[in-house]
Nucleic acid binder design. Structure first.
Ligand SMILES: [Zn+2]
Ligand SMILES: [Zn+2]
Ligand SMILES: [Zn+2]
Ligand SMILES: [Zn+2]
Lengths: 157, 157
DNA sequence: TCATAACTGAAAACGGTTTCCATTTTCTCT
DNA sequence: AGAGAAAATGGAAACCGTTTTCAGTTATGA
């Protein structure tokens, strides 16, 4: 098959991922929400069955390195809540998400769109500042927690 | 002088601050921008002259405790940029700021108003989620860096 | 095949923050 | 003022997420 260099680079992006990174990406895809590096490590171990298999799941170092790689490639997003721990989630390649994080049940809801896209224009005009990245996360109480109808208090971020 | 309990509590807020916290608040007020706890510690030491005096400036532990106290009282805001280190700045009591952080010169510009205040209503409607706090910081390039007219590259956050 | 580069992981280092605990300062009541 | 209780303080150690180091392993490609 004949491809242009650009095509190869794009198509190859996923293929050429090192084994560890591929495993991390898969695990993240299966995960219900955001995961910290350590959470991820646990989950990857658990997803195997025998002790022997578990020991083959990548070490923390590789997980961190893979997350960094995947983030650079735009396949994964690091989410920061202002605490020490970063969480990671898969994203539409090149896109990003923001979240509503319930302080009561700890679940997080993805915003359907970036609230800032439109504002960056305004900021350029008002401040002469060109925004290239931003950090936006919202905290509060989700509907079911507010109504007291939330029985599921699993800390599943 | 006769005061209601509430009045006393409010007026007293600053007065009743422990010595260390008062010192931290003062240092923070004098500072040109946001400071990390460690930066703050340095600055407080430097602001004294003799060795003896310097040793009287509060230790890091007290600084952290004071920042926590001042934050609880709404006099200081902890700013998070998604890295490990928190920065602190004084705010109008009970208010908060967001910033435009230049990735080139590292200076930060305070936004004149919170961009989200109006959006929280929309979010309540669209997601049934009551926002009580939020994290919003913007990164990019400031005007002078973009124009290349910024000679002052001091890393003064 | 051999050489080179890429990848991996355990242990150690790191850096910001928090905890522990013994001491000092401040407050309260007499 | 003085005794006793409560609050504040600071150095050292612990903590915890993350990064670095380095020695060993695996893929790549002439
Ligand atoms: Zn909830
Ligand atoms: Zn966005
Ligand atoms: Zn700049
Ligand atoms: Zn705001």
């Amino acid at each position: 098959m004949i491809r242009t260099k650009l095509e190869s680079r794009l198509v190859g992006a996923r293929k050429n991922l090192p084994k560890g990174a591929k495993a991390v990406l898969e695990a993240l895809q299966k995960a219900p929400g955001m995961l910290s590096a350590r959470d991820l490590s646990f989950r990857m171990k658990l997803s195997h069955h025998t002790k022997e298999e578990q020991s083959k799941s990548p070490g923390l170092t590789t997980i961190y390195r893979s997350l960094e790689l995947l983030t650079r490639q735009g396949l994964v997003q690091a989410v920061s809540f202002g605490d020490q721990e970063k969480r990671y989630e898969v994203v539409e390649p090149g896109c990003h998400n923001h979240h509503l994080v319930c302080k009561s049940c700890k679940k997080s809801i993805k915003l359907r769109e970036c609230l800032l896209a439109s504002l960056e224009e305004t900021i350029k005009r008002d401040y002469g500042f060109s925004v290239s990245e931003h950090l936006l996360e919202l905290f509060g109480t989700c509907q079911s927690c507010e109504l007291g109808t939330n029985l599921d208090n699993t800390d599943r971020r």
